[in-house]
Design a protein around this nucleic acid. Structure first.
Lengths: 121, 121
DNA sequence: CCGCTGTTTCGATAATTGTCTAATCAAGAT
DNA sequence: ATCTTGATTAGACAATTATCGAAACAGCGG
């Protein structure tokens, strides 16, 4: 599958996959929205993935290569790769191969929308 | 267990269970914090629980009784009760029995802290 | 006291998930 | 071409979870 040139993409990309939503406390969240949003929170509902997200976001240039990330955990590369895939498929991060290494960055728009949903109205 | 008088409590209550944390993007999230935070996101990483939270938050007086909540879903009472328990054990909601009915409310401080963590630095 | 209604607990089952090892793919270097 | 290093995919397994039906618990009104 997806075998073209550049950015490897799974979900909203620019973040537009989730178009929505008044803050939780302002009106009852419709089922359809809930079904779309829950997977986003599920994606960050893991200690490893929270740390990955943070590591990527803090890394200089806003990008980190997998080798940087793997080194920070006591887990095998396939496991890290699995977690990165979960984050990417949720649309929270993007990735691109440049030569030998694969770089990841955070789609901060998606995180911002999640924050606004649960945050103070 | 826990059989006393009033508010049924499992976690932070006032929200102080999670004391922490600079925004994700400002510095790498330490493992310890990640381990504490992940369950909070896991608690809301479910369409039913997201809607429950929203329904409770929107309900007049900031409180809702279980019968109000059960009616909004196509699920059995035990299942709703299970999801409420998950939210309560995470510290996201509180509950109290008053006569025949049990009322639930949202601990908005906890949600606010989660929002600040993933939100714009 | 007895039954009624609202809520939770118990026990079971099917589905999901985190992790690993082994194997595969991609890009460079010899 | 072949080898080496970085990264992902495939397959397996243990642990967790969402859901249900049945049973138990808690108040209230006869």
């Amino acid at each position: 599958m997806s075998k073209q040139g550049s950015p490897i993409v799974d979900a909203g990309v620019d973040g537009s996959g989730v178009g929505c939503c008044a803050p939780l406390a302002s009106e009852p969240l419709p089922e359809r929205e809930a079904v779309e949003l829950a997977p986003l929170f599920k994606a960050i509902a893991d200690p490893v993935r929270l740390r990955l997200l943070s590591l990527i976001a803090c890394h200089e240039g806003g990008e980190a290569c997998v080798c940087d990330l793997t080194a920070a955990f006591d887990l095998t590369p396939p496991t890290i790769s699995h977690h990165l895939k979960v984050l990417r498929q949720a649309g929270l991060i993007g990735s691109e191969r440049r030569g030998t290494w694969v770089y990841y960055w955070v789609n901060s728009g998606v995180l911002a929308r999640m924050s606004a949903l649960i945050g103070p109205a």
